[in-house]
Design a binder for these strands. Structure first.
Lengths: 336, 336
DNA sequence: GTGAAAGCGCTAACAC
DNA sequence: GTGTTAGCGCTTTCAC
């Protein structure tokens, strides 16, 4: 930077300002600095700036995995929204482990991010304390929070699953099975199961839960679950799958085995991925706002950065005001 | 850190060493430091360490997009491999723009990454100079490079498409169409088109190229392209799609219109995504090593970090030695 | 195995 | 609109 300053015949601080807040520098000087940067091939060292100012240009994000297209979509939208303001994304995936989440967070915090974006609202014990203590803007995504650490954006997985279940019952089905993921791993899946149970209890029907043999991210696991369902002495009338990928597999199995969908077995999914429309018959499912969650998370981060400091008290009564509910939509197609 | 040192009754440098190279510190002292860190809730400031040592704990990666499951898979595998050694991933997506690539790279370099992972082998003009000048370990992914900046890992998209085309011809097809993406955007897609042209020229057949109306990431675009193909006065006998997602859409259209696959129209895809097996009939396609590319990129980065400095001369004759060719495999299923 | 001193490259605070 | 001074929190270097 000293080189650049000398080339341009100005002080280093002027170079710094020309880069960070150009409007504070006269156009002529700005142009001289620009030319000097070009001539010297200068690349700023953000580590120094971060150290001095205690503010980096990075936002840390933790996702369970990027292998699931839906999280990748959210992260991509988040990155887009942040880049518009010159913020970089520092990403870590926790592999669904909430122990890993805390240690990953500690590492990320060491990079002095200006904000943190988390997936879900259930976190390892130390996470909340770590973040609150630093008064860092935090956005929790993909579900609503009763008591958000700071801000949250998502939709109620529980309410969505409840509504889908009620919709299946409204079509006259009584024996409605829920096909979910092994418990204790995916929080969103657990919320969907809870919503299904809510609905079945309201309806006075007996809950019937079948497990996928993986996280439901594969068509094959849906196929295997559907086979298990159909092999029963008395198969259910409807099967509500925790996501579209597995539900798609189930439809394929029915087609193969000559089981009529929806007359013999109604099938519903969750997500409204493109696969849902491509399925034959197309899937009845719940549309969820994946990319919008990312874009909104970016907006919330920027608002926080522009606005007031993060309150440490965080009175519970405004919990709702700090959650953005993006909603969901039950999409009726021919599979149920 | 001074706090921690005082708690533990040692100098700050000992705290630093206990964290970065524990074997240099006696077990008793190490334990006292650990306890002091716990007591004080200390989180290291990497910006300071990076500034002094000129080495961060970050690896920068640029991908065209995370929305495509295949890049997300690679990035996830890369992140896993790096985390094992305490390295964080700094990710940016370029949105397929190679102008954006250079400016994004400049920003990322400011964070003092210890290595850079790029997608593809065609880069904006300044990219190579910027990286070579810094002698930074660089890994280019997803295609083979004639003259890699440093290291490269992938497979030959061109050879893979050529082989698939030859396989279609071997089944007796003469009028083989290639359904690709608009030119100048996706480099991998361009290589695949080139491979198709290679094969058709070898076979003495006339090339026939149809365009998808997006980047071929959607089932719907494949459906539209298939409709266009079938609406022709004389449709091709076989259609080779630039990826499985679009090919899947084409199969769906044929099913809907009562066009027999493969007898009336043979269909091939590229990627061997899970969709390929789920399709009915299942897709003939090319298996490509998405996750392995990420894992190998991580390995190459770590080797580079452990080993010698990056040579600046980079003699062309060892270009091949610096490329890892992970290969591909033509998978014959019933769609062609 | 441990410590003391110096300084990485930038920006906050304050001057002019 | 521009410059001067000081120091962010670590790690390097050198000493013991």
């Amino acid at each position: 930077m000293a080189d650049v300053a000398q080339h341009a015949g100005v002080g280093t601080i002027t170079v710094s300002r020309a880069l960070r807040s150009p409007q504070q520098v006269s156009p002529q000087v700005r142009e001289r600095v620009r030319a000097a940067i070009e001539a010297t091939g200068y690349v700023p060292n953000f580590a120094a700036g971060t150290l001095k100012s205690q503010r980096s240009r990075m936002v840390a994000a933790i996702v369970p995995t990027l292998r699931s297209a839906i999280f990748a979509e959210t992260v991509d939208a988040l990155a887009d929204g942040l880049r518009a303001r010159g913020l970089q994304l520092l990403i870590a995936s926790s592999g669904y482990s909430s122990e890993a989440e805390e240690s990953i967070l500690r590492t990320l915090l060491g990079q002095q991010p200006v904000a943190v974006v988390l997936t879900g609202t259930h976190h390892a014990p130390g996470v909340r304390a770590l973040l609150r203590a630093r008064r860092l803007p935090v956005v929790e995504t993909w579900d609503l929070a009763d008591d958000p650490i700071d801000r949250a954006v998502g939709f109620s997985n529980r309410a969505a699953a409840r509504e889908m279940t009620l919709a299946l019952a409204a079509r006259g089905h009584r024996r409605i099975a829920f096909v979910g993921t092994p418990p204790g791993i995916e929080q969103r899946a657990a919320q969907r199961l809870a919503g299904y149970r809510d609905a079945m209890a309201e309806l006075g029907l007996e809950a019937d839960v079948e497990m996928l043999d993986d996280l439901g991210v594969s068509i094959a696991s849906g196929e295997r679950a559907a086979e298990a369902l159909l092999a029963r002495r008395r198969p259910p009338q409807a099967a509500f799958f925790v996501n579209d990928v597995a539900a798609f597999g189930a439809v394929q199995v029915c087609q193969r085995l000559g089981v009529a969908v929806p007359t013999e077995l109604a099938i519903a999914g969750f997500g409204d991925f493109e696969l849902a429309r491509a399925s034959n018959p197309p899937l009845t499912t719940v549309r969820i706002p994946g990319a919008l969650i990312g874009a909104t998370a970016a907006r919330l981060v920027l608002e926080r950065l522009d606005g007031d400091a993060v309150p440490d008290g965080a009175p519970a009564r405004d919990a709702q005001a700090r959650c953005v509910d993006l909603g969901f939509e039950v999409i009726s197609r021919r599979s149920a």
